[in-house]
Design a protein around this nucleic acid. Structure first.
Lengths: 338, 338
DNA sequence: CTGTTAGCGCCTTCAA
DNA sequence: TTGAAGGCGCTAACAG
């Protein structure tokens, strides 16, 4: 490809000045004659000059780029977070490197972080919901600011924005009990770390406290619509007696799975919420348009992403701020599926 | 933040060699003593060395980065394309800059392309579905390979991967006619360029050919679930008589909108597909789980993204390949909503 | 106000 | 096989 990218030098030549002068003119930096500045800017524009951010970054030590690692584009929850991060990054004049990790391989995620490092990003946001000792280690070693969303380094050594999953889980289960469901099933997501364990624990605790005994718990490999559908199929085939004998409700790890559950239940002729109740988690946009509209727990994901971004900007500007674990509250959204 | 990124120089010092030697060792480039190579590599690893891709890119002229501009993360169609592009980029060892354009501002999109240029990306994929003379102009001026997905520069001067929207639209409308619907409504997306105009034209043409007269057409500002819901509400309030008198079907610009339509129709007590038929376009993952499962047109978006990526890689390697407009076929998916 | 010099971290000649 | 110089495009001191 013909690389005819015009450089500062060429423009200097054309304008009959030295190239630092051009640099100053183009950056609108002080101490420069108004006449020359105008002349240089005109020439630059005429020749379609665009500054080489690579070179600029090399010397200024500010690449003007951020890195974002997240699960996958088809995940509505993490995608909304990614969207907000992208907007915030742009607003601050940053470009954004992105890498998804559709595999369930944690090592891959760490590799991504390292590659971002090699690209001299000024900060990294990890929104994958995964965590573990390897993460803590990497984050400790890395000298680039990192903020995680919805997971915290196991030893709370880093900076993170989380959500009160335990509280939300308790609220959902309590709501289901109050609605009179006697058998509360949990359809989980085996690939989520903190979110899954917190919600599972909430489910356990609330059931126990209310003297509900051994309830059904099925984990999916991931948290997609099809996973929720598959888990529900499995549920129906393995526990149909229990479902018919006790007034049951299904609580899904997230709304996507709940959508899949609704679909399968509908196909099998169950009336929601009378035959079976269904609840989700997250309150993604389409949940309000589910049939019937989905009862769920609202996670303020936009705000979480915003806070994460602000946190990161803070870390970029001020060095060595102490570890922080910001926990945000959500709220129950009761619609028509329970 | 303490930037203690270790450089090639330091390692050279530590190893007691000159830094070009280190460079060679680390890149596994020929002509280097096996002993020294090993020693250097060990030291590098011990000190957690990561090559500075910025600097490397500056001299090699190969940034190893690609740019992707697309609509928004919550758009299931374009997100799937983005996902595939990301995977392909990674497979080839590229990092990916991403920028979404949630605004409907085309100028913003061109700005993004320019900023990618400044970052020395080696290639750009534009998957926004937008087009126009300003695009053609920019693409012509830009010396970086650009491939567009689902839109082509008005004058066919660039490289693009498209889908046969007209053919798909015809097939959908014909299917609805065959199913016995007498009133075929189109709910469009005002922010899509090529896709909208092609589908709208298909709708017009097929209706005309079959002597159907003035049908209803409502455009939404965008193509999201809530847009489909809003358009359907509008439809119900303005044309209820017509809907009850003639056997009607609603064809939506995309599946997301169709999901919104299904929700509203359900809330208003319509039975699908007997009272009203609903069809979408795209065949996104969740369409199979809609209630009822959605009849739609399958766009091979993964393949489209793959082809676009391959096309781009080709352009990066070989300069000056002639304009190309790759058109991919889709297929009808009849489920239970019609 | 402007030009000179130096250097960011790396790769690529060329000699040795 | 290795080292010494030069330069990628730009900014940041200094001079003048």
């Amino acid at each position: 490809m013909t690389k005819v990218t015009i450089s500062i030098k060429k423009i200097a030549e054309l304008a009959g000045v030295s190239y630092p002068t051009v640099s100053r003119a183009l950056r609108n930096e002080g101490r420069i004659g108004e006449e020359t500045r105008k002349r240089i800017v005109t020439i630059a524009r005429e020749h379609g000059y665009t500054p080489n951010l690579t070179a600029r970054g090399l010397v200024s030590k500010r690449s003007g780029a951020l890195g974002l690692v997240f699960t996958r584009f088809s995940d509505p929850f993490h995608s909304d977070i990614a969207q907000k991060v992208e907007i915030e990054a742009n607003r601050r004049g940053y470009s954004l490197f992105i890498a998804s990790n559709e595999t369930q391989d944690k090592e891959r995620e760490l590799e991504i972080v390292r590659s971002f490092q090699g690209r001299n990003v000024e900060g990294i946001i990890v929104s994958s919901g995964r965590e573990g000792p390897r993460y803590s280690q990497l984050f400790r070693e890395t000298n680039i600011p990192i903020v995680t969303v919805n997971s915290h380094a196991a030893d709370h050594i880093g900076h993170s924005v989380c959500h009160d999953d335990y509280g939300g889980g308790c609220a959902i289960v309590q709501h289901l009990i109050k609605k009179g469901y006697q058998n509360i099933i949990y359809l989980g997501n085996g690939s989520a770390d903190k979110a899954q364990s917190d919600r599972l624990r909430a489910w356990h605790d609330v059931l126990k406290k209310n003297s509900f005994v051994p309830a059904i718990h099925i984990d999916s490999p991931e948290g997609r619509v099809q996973d929720g559908a598959a888990a529900t199929e499995q549920l129906l085939s393995q526990h149909s007696a229990q479902l018919r004998n006790m007034r049951s409700a299904i609580w899904c790890f997230n709304d996507a799975m709940a959508l899949g559950a609704l679909s399968v239940l509908h196909r099998h002729g169950f009336a929601i919420p009378t035959d079976i109740g269904v609840a989700g988690f997250d309150d993604i946009d389409s949940s309000a348009f589910a049939i019937p509209a989905l009862t769920t727990w609202h996670q303020p994901r936009q705000e979480m992403a915003s806070v994460a971004a602000q946190m990161l900007f803070g870390l970029i500007e001020v060095s060595d701020s102490p570890p922080a674990d910001f926990v945000m509250p959500g709220w129950l959204v009761v619609r028509h599926s329970t």
